[in-house]
């Protein structure tokens, strides 16, 4: 029995590796095709189709996108700023809200949870939230309109609360006996114990802010405050319109290669965030898995 099991194991593992290899190839290959297409010549791309290595190397698409580099760089700046401030602020506020909810000695636990749950089930809708942001807080055309609406997301609060609840009460109790105040308890004991959940939710928030164009669509008219994704989305949409209703004064614009180049630009920096979060991320996957 023992022998048979041992001899089987490598075969199973090879199978597993092959499967994983295929899956990762399926994930990586499209990405490479996109990058390759973005570096191709538009006409060559139409003639020969997509390939892993550009058949005719050309930087036309990037040249087109960087025609007005100031706007693109500004938008990168806006997105970095919003993502940075947003993620940190969002983590802080979310965890400070989730932590008390996990404490059994907190009296308003139930009602506050209900209140948060309520926003998950019923939302105010588009027009009322627009009115709140633009009329009540007067955030239109400010950077805050890109940050504040996503500051607290109910789902993340519950995810964090569940994690905090797995921290044994005894730790909190013993810390209290040692004479630690609430703030010190939170920042020096709870936070270091919660890096997996903070990293997971941090990644979610980062992606959330990085990928967002919707808030900009609603609240931003000032071209100086346009975030990257919104800019790229508009560039794509505008190319479509220009190419379909061309008149004599506009020149023709490469469309397929530019589409790929915008995708490359959009995912560029955020890919590195994954590497940074990766070590926490694997642990984070099990967050909330124990207690539902």
């Amino acid at each position: 029995m023992e022998l048979r099991k041992r001899s089987r194991l490598p075969a199973a593992q090879i199978m597993l590796h092959v499967i994983l290899l295929i899956i990762s190839l399926l994930c990586i290959l499209p990405l490479i095709v996109v990058i390759s297409a973005s570096l191709s010549d538009e006409a060559a791309l139409t003639q020969n189709g997509y390939s892993l290595i550009p058949t005719q190397f050309s930087l036309d698409a990037y040249q087109f996108l960087f025609r007005q580099p100031d706007q693109l760089l500004r938008s990168y700046g806006v997105t970095f700023l919003v993502t940075g401030i947003g993620t940190i602020a969002s983590l802080l506020v979310t965890s400070l809200l989730a932590y008390p909810l996990s404490r059994k000695d907190f009296q308003l636990r139930r009602s506050l949870s209900m209140y948060i749950l309520f926003t998950m089930l019923f939302s105010g809708g588009l027009v009322p939230s627009y009115m709140v942001v633009s009329r009540v807080f007067h955030l239109k055309d400010t950077i805050w309109s890109l940050i504040l609406p996503y500051l607290v997301i109910a789902w993340f609060v519950f995810l964090m609360r569940t994690f905090f609840a797995t921290i044994p009460d005894e730790i909190i109790e013993s810390a209290k006996i040692d004479g630690v105040g609430e703030y010190r308890l939170y920042f020096q004991i709870i936070v270091p114990l919660s890096t997996p959940v903070l990293a997971t939710i941090g990644l979610f928030c980062t992606l959330n802010y990085w990928n967002d164009w919707y808030l900009a669509l609603l609240y931003i008219d000032d071209r100086n405050l346009i975030p990257l994704q919104y800019l790229l989305m508009n560039i794509m949409k505008n190319i479509e319109v220009i190419n379909s209703s061309v008149n004599a004064t506009t020149s023709i614009i490469p469309s397929d290669t530019v589409r790929m180049a915008t995708a490359t630009l959009a995912i560029g920096p955020i890919i590195f965030v994954y590497l940074f979060f990766q070590k926490f991320f694997v642990r984070g996957l099990t967050v909330g898995a124990v207690k539902g």
Binding site: R135, D221, M236, K237
Partner: peptide, 19 residues
């Protein structure tokens, strides 16, 4: 003159007139 991008015109007008 408020020129809105093609991709956002529809939605933005919708929200603005809605609000």
């Amino acid at each position: 003159l408020n020129l809105l991008d093609w991709g956002s015109f529809e939605q933005k007008m919708n929200v603005m007139s809605g609000a």
